[in-house]
């Protein structure tokens, strides 16, 4: 019973991860490139120009959700999305696991 439940939980988790990677790696190419709500408002009401150049554009190979050096937009954006998703997963899992473990020890 415990085993089955653990197995099913792992399976559902795996499906969730595959869906997330598919969204970030493939579907993201078809996302709207129109300005988002805040950018649009900034343009309409006249404070768009105040936005500074982002520092990460100078150092990050993933800036603007494109993998630097890859020409193909579909590949470049997809790879950046997959890397970002896995990175957030790793940091998130690590953080949550540490917090959960400490809780279990205290109890």
């Amino acid at each position: 019973m415990r085993q089955t439940s653990r197995w099913r939980r792992g399976f559902a988790w795996g499906v969730g991860l595959v869906v997330a990677l598919f969204l970030a790696g493939v579907v993201s190419f078809y996302a709207s490139s129109s300005p988002d709500g805040l950018e649009w408002v900034a343009g309409q009401t006249g404070f768009e120009e105040a936005a500074g150049e982002h520092a990460a554009l100078g150092y990050s190979p993933l800036a603007d959700y494109q993998f630097a050096g890859l020409e193909d937009a579909r590949l470049s954006g997809g790879l950046a999305g997959v890397i970002g998703t896995l990175l957030v997963l790793a940091i998130g899992m690590g953080l949550m696991w540490v917090l959960a473990r400490r809780t279990s020890k205290q109890v």
Binding site: A20, S33, G84, A90, G92, M93
Partner: peptide, 19 residues
């Protein structure tokens, strides 16, 4: 629930790419 929480963070990152 810790692995689920990590997955939720990754899922939100992915969906935030989908304008």
């Amino acid at each position: 629930t810790a692995p689920l929480a990590g997955l939720v963070a990754a899922f939100i990152f992915a969906t935030q790419m989908l304008n």
